[in-house]
Design a protein around this nucleic acid. Structure first.
Length: 619
RNA sequence: GCCUCGAUAGCUCAGCCUGGUAGAGCGAACGCCUCGUAAGCGUUAGGCCGCGGGAUCGAAUCCCGCUCGAGGCUCCA
């Protein structure tokens, strides 16, 4: 049996100097000292019989383990002393050259073959810094993790469930009245779709100075301008208020976790995640991709009785990180860093879990409506194991009947994921892309995995059933949906706009001539005192230009102040929604705005009140 | 990860095919106009034409490589 032998070391640095040729066929090189920092050094001995296949496998394994330690620089270092059955030098050199071929995501260096070298090396102190492998031909050693393999084996059965609880075959269902559900169903059951337009919200997010790509960061990490930050804060405030109203307790947990913590290890083994890795002092940390671990680890340290349940922990993660494939990242639809409201409820048994699940279903519907999204624009998908469905049909049917329209059903023969039931609301955009917003799951596995316990009525420790709910979905994705909706309005000939409570500017005051500025300032101050975001276009521009700018910024109320207004009590107010100019007193305007934003959070304007004092952010 | 496309002024882009003095609109600065519900007028500043190499008398323009970005696909426990 032939085995390529590799000793792999994660080093702070290595430094080597070729001293003299050891064999005739040594590589012709300039014998200079080389120094590398932060590098993985692979000492390689090629054995008699090793071939390209072995070379390829070896590189796959090396690159896999390098990903784990978060290092992208490799030095291949020929090291004959690892074996006594060496391949011939020419074979060894050609295999090493093959291993040194360019490879995406790796910077590969090769130490010269056939030279005696002196070297100095400093190896890192973390557990994965040193490892050795033997690679042999023929043996099935795929880089795909067990979890990924298992996942591809799960069997799904797709159906449509109508509000009366009946299941329909997806191929036989008449989608005539349910076009976006059809898109979702086809999307999910993997039919082809082709789009060549970028989604319209990308232009809008820049035009309205909400957010933009940040080339100096990683893809999918956006920057949010004052307008965007304000909108996010408002959405976050709203969702948090609603969750607290429902009974959630807000907590805060760390952003990074030790990959080798026992609970994390068992989680990773089951669920391959594309996470960001961070190395620090020999520890391998990963950035959280959800709030789950933090809350579970916290709950584990609580001493709980069944009387404390359900216990609802809530966190708004800014951020959660998922290193999605670069090609999937589009505007605000899918990001690598996102803000996720995440609420877990520990329940004592399935009965309590089901009751809680219903409450959270209603909460989510309410939140979606409050955020300015219409339930009719969403398509629900519900997923469960066959066993759960057979035992809990009334719950499933109740949820579907509440929605009052057909929903997509995915049923699994066996439980693969940690949950037995999951639903989500999906928004289907103009390019036929479906994105999940709200979701809730019944988790029967992590209570045990994280060793969360409560004492039941009989003084016995039990693991709770855990519900995982995001009532709104990612905050950035909420903005994506609002902008896509606005784009749709525009396309269909309606005026695009944002919900008034979310608009960065709610009222703009424009003087006809600079001499009315004083009056405008007093007016703006008066309106502002009623918790309304009002600003003042104090630039010396024509009225037409100022109005045009306000309109393109989607500002709902525009007040023009001239001779007439200064000496009267009524203001002329241009209402973007109706496109008309109406006459109202200040109090009447305030009342109208207060009514429309009733029950929604308020934050002060996040920019100078004076338009002339603002930097130009976008064209 | 794979495929395709792109990178020129602060922004959006033209010029490139067919090599020969770097262009427009918007924005900015300054000045004029003092204006009634979607763009008033003028002047000025602003460029390593992404980076590196090649062929050419000569490259933003042609060729090769690299980097970064975008879109699609796959994917999205």
């Amino acid at each position: 049996m032939q085995n390529m032998r590799i000793l792999q070391l994660h080093c702070d640095y290595i430094e080597f100097t070729p001293v003299k040729k050891e064999i005739k066929s040594a590589e012709e090189i300039d014998p200079q000292s080389k120094h590398f920092d932060e590098i993985v050094v692979a000492f390689v001995a090629v054995e008699d019989g090793d071939n390209s296949e072995v070379a390829k496998k070896a590189m796959n394994e090396i690159s896999e383990s390098m990903k784990k330690v978060g290092c992208g620089k490799l030095l291949l270092y020929p090291y004959a002393h690892l074996s006594s059955k060496l391949a011939s030098p020419s074979t060894a050199l050609s295999i090493l050259k093959e291993m040194g071929e360019k490879r995406d995501g790796l910077e590969i260096n090769r130490a010269p073959f056939g030279w005696t070298k002196s070297y100095k090396i400093q190896v890192k102190g973390h557990p994965l810094a040193e490892n050795s492998k033997t690679i042999s031909a023929g043996e099935e050693k795929e880089s795909t993790s067990e979890a990924l393999k298992a996942e591809s084996k799960i069997q799904s059965f797709w159906h449509i469930m109508t509000p009366d609880g009946k299941m329909h075959d997806i191929d036989k269902f008449n989608f005539a009245k349910y076009q976006s559900l059809e898109v979702l169903a086809k999307y999910e059951s993997a039919k082809k779709r082709s789009v060549d337009e970028p989604p319209p919200h990308v232009k809008l997010m820049k035009k309205l100075a909400i957010a933009d790509y940040e080339p100096a960061s990683d893809a999918g990490n956006m920057r949010f301008f004052p307008n965007g930050r304000l909108m996010k804060s408002l959405i976050e405030r709203y969702v948090t208020d609603k969750v607290v109203e429902y009974g959630g307790f807000e907590v805060e947990t760390p952003i990074m976790y030790d990959s080798h913590h026992p609970s994390m290890e068992s989680y990773f083994n089951r669920f391959p995640a594309r996470q960001y890795n961070v190395n620090s002092e020999g520890k391998q940390l990963f950035l959280r991709f959800a709030a789950c671990f933090g809350q579970f680890l916290m709950a584990k340290d609580f001493q709980m009785s069944y009387k404390n349940l359900p216990l609802r922990l809530y966190e708004l993660t800014r951020y959660s990180f998922r290193r999605e494939q670069s090609g999937e990242l589009v505007g605000l639809r899918r990001l690598r860093a996102f803000t996720m409201p995440d609420c877990h409820a520990m329940c004592k048994d399935m009965e309590q879990a089901k009751e809680e699940f219903r409450k959270r279903f209603d909460l989510s519907r309410q939140v979606i409506r409050g955020l300015g999204m219409n339930e009719s624009e969403f398509e629900m998908a519900i997923r469960f194991t066959e066993e759960f469905y057979n035992e809990n049909r009334p719950l499933v049917e109740e949820l579907v009947s509440k929605i009052g329209k057909p929903v997509l059903v995915e049923m699994w023969k066996e439980r693969f994921f940690y949950f037995v039931l999951k639903w989500e609301f999906n928004y289907v955009d103009s390019s036929g892309k479906a994105s999940a917003l709200s979701t809730d799951q019944i988790d029967v596995e992590n209570g045990k995995r994280y060793n969360i316990e409560f004492i039941d009525e009989n003084n016995k420790p039990q693991n709770p059933i855990i519900l995982h709910n995001s009532p709104s979905g990612a905050v950035e994705r909420v903005i994506y949906v609002l902008l896509e909706k606005a784009a749709k309005d525009q396309r269909e000939g309606r005026k695009p706009g944002l919900p008034l409570w979310l608009a960065p500017t709610q009222v703009r005051v424009i003087p006809v001539k600079p001499e009315f500025l004083d009056y405008c300032e007093k007016l703006a101050e008066k309106i502002s005192q009623n918790d309304i975001r009002v600003d003042l276009d104090d630039r010396n521009e024509s009225v037409g230009k100022s109005i045009r700018d306000a309109e393109t910024d989607w500002i709902r109320y525009i007040i023009v102040i001239g001779e007439k207004e200064v000496s009267a009590t009524k203001l002329s107010i241009r209402d973007r929604k109706t496109g008309t100019v109406k006459e109202l007193a200040v109090d009447e305007l305030v009342k109208e705005i207060k009514e429309e934003t009733n029950g929604m959070p308020f934050l002060r304007m996040n920019m100078s009140r004076y338009v002339s004092k603002r930097p130009q952010i976008m064209v």
